[in-house]
Every structure is written in structure tokens, then in C-alpha cells.
Design a protein around this nucleic acid. Sequence first.
DNA 1: AGTTAAACGAGACGGTACGTCTCGTCTTCGT
DNA 2: ACGAAGACGAGACGTACCGTCTCGTTTAACT
Lengths: 195, 195, 195, 195
Amino acid sequence: MTEHRSGPVRSAAAREAILAATARLLVDEGWDRLTIEGIARDAGVGKQTIYRWWPSKGALVAECLLDGRFFPVEPVVRDTGDLRRDLREWLTPVLHFLNSPTGRSLVNSLVAAATGEAGVGAHLSEAFGADRLLADRLRAAVGAGELPPDAPVDELGNAVLGLLIFEVLSKDEIDVTAFLRLVEYLLGPRRTSAG
Amino acid sequence: MTEHRSGPVRSAAAREAILAATARLLVDEGWDRLTIEGIARDAGVGKQTIYRWWPSKGALVAECLLDGRFFPVEPVVRDTGDLRRDLREWLTPVLHFLNSPTGRSLVNSLVAAATGEAGVGAHLSEAFGADRLLADRLRAAVGAGELPPDAPVDELGNAVLGLLIFEVLSKDEIDVTAFLRLVEYLLGPRRTSAG
Amino acid sequence: MTEHRSGPVRSAAAREAILAATARLLVDEGWDRLTIEGIARDAGVGKQTIYRWWPSKGALVAECLLDGRFFPVEPVVRDTGDLRRDLREWLTPVLHFLNSPTGRSLVNSLVAAATGEAGVGAHLSEAFGADRLLADRLRAAVGAGELPPDAPVDELGNAVLGLLIFEVLSKDEIDVTAFLRLVEYLLGPRRTSAG
Amino acid sequence: MTEHRSGPVRSAAAREAILAATARLLVDEGWDRLTIEGIARDAGVGKQTIYRWWPSKGALVAECLLDGRFFPVEPVVRDTGDLRRDLREWLTPVLHFLNSPTGRSLVNSLVAAATGEAGVGAHLSEAFGADRLLADRLRAAVGAGELPPDAPVDELGNAVLGLLIFEVLSKDEIDVTAFLRLVEYLLGPRRTSAG
DNA sequence: AGTTAAACGAGACGGTACGTCTCGTCTTCGT
DNA sequence: ACGAAGACGAGACGTACCGTCTCGTTTAACT
């Protein structure tokens, strides 16, 4: 039996405006210049409408992440049968994006959000697409014998993502070539499916 | 030839009190509850004395990092001739520390600091000791033939560190066993020095 | 037609607390130790609530003046038909008040406020009651023939007030007798209503 | 001839620079934007040099007053035998000066200084020249029979000065004509020396 | 169609912290 | 010994947001 009561219902327009404003401001201003007041202003919404539905700005960002409002992620990692090549081709544009001001700013902001809000961290992996896309491709590689059967595919995906984040945090610019070489090393020695 | 001018000189006592307060408060309260006013209060110092010497709270944290005020880091990664065992023995207490509330809080705070301040990120690696300790041990392993000659030892150290950080950010608790297994996988297949 | 908008309305309690604190602190501490922070603290109010409604501490003092929060002014200058006697009787307690620490402090504070804020000066005259009380009595004296028909009654009131202020500023103590004698001289030679 | 001395002695140059800076800044910026730091900066002097010789900024202003650094006062009130005319001629330029921005600012600043510093008030009268110049002329008028023998000449001077100050504080602009008329009224009915 | 109660925009409120300014005291050099 | 320079602890400045709390208006489900 459903609870029911009279009165208006949650405004979809307000929700959309708030999340859109959050995403825009997070990218443009960064995590710590992202404020509830700013979001309310930008969304043309009362502050209370935000506090009514989200407990914190971290929760707003987490919802933006789930909505995929940040990365127009490459939907798949192609499978041409050559794992190293496929990864290289998927990673290259990602690395270049992360070297752009927008990319760096976005990663910094999302990581900052994650440090203050466990809920954001939990979705970081999905947000970057690493969990499904990367792991799927690695799993296929295991099936094809390109990786040993005991390869921890899920963890490997996270390792690549963690490395990516660490590079953004600690360096001015990621050296794309070196990064690709490292990933290749991490995957271990090349095997043929016949191997 | 040094620039010199008359007048009083920077107070070492104030510097020490400020950095000590910063380190204490960052661990106890976390990055975004760390405030200049709080530091000044805790250090018994005027706010201006902080602003005179440091441009931001990130810079304060960066200096604490360089001073090694956060981790009483294990001074070396032992070298028994067995890289995997040595790493396991070094990593185990580190992982347990990172699973403790203090450890998690510290990593979260430092990463948060790094996202807002390029200078902090640049020192994250040193702070965790990964740069020197880990890389040194890996380099020795290359010399001993435990790792192939082309192993990118510096990047490998950062990869482990990045993975560590990512796990803290995205999970409630690091699975120590799984983490060690992953590291072992990343190092590639075991080789004998005779190999 | 009045402008109206939705939303909360100005808090009368806050206004009262702020003005009361302002009046108390001005008398107790003096103009330049009167601070917005002190008022906010004393009134149990956020600073922004003060800044929202008053542009400066001078404006606060001006509003206190208009509210008559400083002098429990003698409501009238009595009219017994003898102008000189009536003035003497009204002025005597006023002069004694101005010789008291509270009185001196208050005049000093109000004058200081007036120098920094035109709005305060404009109300000084009303605040001391000189404008209405004194001028009314003088006007009656003109009607009764005690003063010549061309006597500038409003200006005369201000002259007495100006003199009063000047004495407080420039002397340690007003000589009551000399002051009364001077006022009497300024009014000009005694006239009978029969002229 | 060069300054030479063994062992430094109070620097006349510093004193001069400090007082000059004080006078300049008081006129230009007003009492409450006059700061010790600003004076030191402007005078090219260490703050301590100021604190060593003067206890407060009020004392600095008082010394400037005594030095006559503010008004290039009309050196005398002329005596043509006609008190009212002489006063009118002396007061007219004074009133116009007080209506100028510089004049108003100066009076406001000096009065503000006087409210915070008894020592300044004590010299206000001399500073405006009222004490000597005005009183002298009034005394002469008594001698000439233009004023009654019991006229309180010193107090009359202060009364005019107090009125002047009050007008500056409480009005946007002094009405010169009305002011002169008032002064004339205060002096009492015209008398001839033969009278 | 009218009633009714929650969601809405707006924004006032008591607070905390910001980064800057000046206070008056205190070193430290150089003359 | 004095003067310039300026670091220091202290604390107010005016601004920005916090999260909570009214307000009046709008709107949708239930009479």
C-alpha cells in the first residue's frame, strides 16, 4: 500500500536545473568554489529546494556522476583481438582529455569531492567507466588467452584508474607515451592465444 | 651576495608552532575543517603571521609533508633478495595503517589538499615514501635480475601509490590480501636471478 | 501602493537587540571602541544582520538618536513667564549631567559619530532636544515680548547647544555659573512684556 | 654647514616629516583614516620613532595644532571702530573656508580628534584663533563702549566658535548671511561710544 | 470546483571563516 | 643611542556561505 498525501510533487524541472548547475559549476569553478548558494543562484532555485532533496554538495556531485553528466565516455573498449593495441587506442584520447585544463579540473574536483564524501568515491570508478568498460575488455583478454587465467581483471582496471588519478594530482602533465608503456608493462609479457 | 635588510627576523618558534598545529589539525579534523583561524588559534599566533609566510593552507600542508610530519615512515624497504616478500612485509603494516581511521583520514586530507594545490600533489609521492624507498628497492631488484632491465621502476612505485590512494577513496576498507596479490601480479612473473 | 515580496520579514527582535547594544556600548566604551563585532556579540546577532540594514556604525548611532535612546530628555522647558529663570532651571540639570563622566562620554561619542557621518550630525540637535524644546520656549518668549520680534529663535537654540558641545570638548569641566551668565548675556537685555 | 653630531640625538628631520605627514593626511583622509602606520609610511620613518615621542595620534594632531599647521589664520581682527563690521569682515572668509570641502573636512577631523583626546580639545580654541584674536577685538569693543563692561569677552569668543563647529557638524552648508545675523544678535543691541 | 498541504522562489537569521588592515610592542641592523 | 625596517600577537574590518527558518505563491491530488 502506498503512502499518499495531497499536494504538489517533486519538481523535475528544479532537479534538472540543480544538477545541471552543479555539473557546470564543478567543472568551471572547482570543488571548493562550488557552493550551495551558487548552485541555487545559477539554477534559479531556492536553497531549501536543494537541502530538501540532497544532504550535501557531495551528494549532488555523486548524483551527477551517476547521471553521467561529466564524461561523454567512450562507450566501449574495442576488441580487435589485440589487447595492448585496444587499450592504447582507448587510453590515448582519455589521456589527452586529462591533460586538458577541463580534464584536469574535472579530475581534481571529483577527487576532492570523493575525499569529503564516501558516496562520491564509491562511484568514481563507474564514473570514469573503468569498472565496466576496462574490466570487460580485460575479461575478454583472459578468455582469449591474452592474459593469464588468474589475472585480477577488476583490480587491474582500478589500478589503471588509480594511476591515472595519481598522475593528474602529482604532475603538471601526464607523459602519454610513458603512461602507455607502463600500462603495457603492468599487463605482463605478451602472450599469443596459441601460447 | 645576499640581500640584506635591517629589522627583525622570522620567528622560528612561530614557524614550528604553526606547522605543528597544521599537522595536528589536519589529522584530527580533516582538510575542509582545517582553517587558518583554527591553526592560528591552536598555535597561539596571529593570522597575519601565517599569511606572511604561506600563501594558502595548501602550502602549509605541503611544508608539513616535506618536513615528514605525517608518517613516521618505515625508513627502508628491506632487501632480503626476495622482492615479493620484501614488498609484502613493507606493505602489510602500511595497508593496516591505511585501514585505520587515522590512516584513512590522513590520506583523504592529503589528497584533498593535493586537489586544491598543485604544490601538495608534487610532494605526495615523497610524503608516502614511495618515490625513494619503493623505487630504490625495485631498482635493486632490477640489478638482481628479479625484474627485467626495462622495468620502469619509478613509475611502478607511483602506480602502487596511486592504487593505494584509489582504494582508500573508493572503498570502505582495503582488502589486504587482494591488494598484495594484485601488486604481485603487477610485478610480472617471478624470475630467478639465474633466469 | 507598497512594494511587497515574499519571504521572511525583518526581525523586530534583532533590530531592538542591535540598537540596544549600540546605545549601551556607545555610552560604556565610547565611539572608537564601538565596533560592529562588539555590537553583534552583545546583541547575540550575526554581523551580516547589521550590515544588511545599516550601512555603518554611524547610521546605527543616528537611529539610536532618533529613537531617543540616549537622553531621557526633560520633556519640556517650563514656561513661568520668566525666560531667564526657566532656561536656568532647565539648563542646570543638563549642565550637571554633562559634567558627569557619563554625560561627557556621551557627548564626546555623539560628536565623534557626527564627524564621521553627516546623518548623525543632522540629528544631533533633535537628540539634545534643543531644536524643539528650547526653540519652543524661545518662541513663547518672543510672543510674550521677552525677546525682540526679530530674535532668531531656532538659531539661538543651536547656539546654546553648540556652546555646550564646545565646552565639553575643550574644558575639563563646565563652569555652570559662568555658562548660565553667558546664556543670559546672549539673550540680550531684559525686557518686560509691557516693553 | 653640515649637521654633525656624535651619538644620535632626536632627529629634527624626523619630527618635521612626521608632523608634516600628520597634517597632510589628516586634511586629506580624515581623522579615522589617519593611522600611525600611514604617517610612518608617508614620513619615511619607523613606527617606533613615532611611538617614542608621542603617545597617540591625538597628541600628534594636538602638536600640529599648536604649530599652526592647519590654518593660515588671518593674523588679526581689524579694528575700525565698528565691531559689527569688523567681525563681519573677519568672519566672512572664515565661513567660506568652512563651507569648502577642505574646511569642512578639517573641522570634522579636528573635532573628531578632540573627542578622543582631551589634549586636542584644549587647543581647539587657540587653533581657530578664536581665543586671542576674537577676544582681543571684543575687549577693545568693551573699552570703546561698543559692548557693555560686563560682557564676557572670552566666553563670547568661544560661543561663536562653538556655534561655528555645530553648524559644520549638523548642516550641509552654513548659511553665511544667517550666521552673521545671529552673531550680530548675540552681541546685543548696538551702542555708540557716546551712548 | 473547492479544499488542503506540500513544494517552490526568495531571502532573513545566527554563525564561522575568509583575507586584509592597523594596533602597539618587540627585535635586529646600520649609522 | 637612535632611527629604519618590519615581525609579532591581537583583533576588527566587510564579504561569502553555511544550514535553518519563515514567508507568500503555486500546484496537484483528494474530496
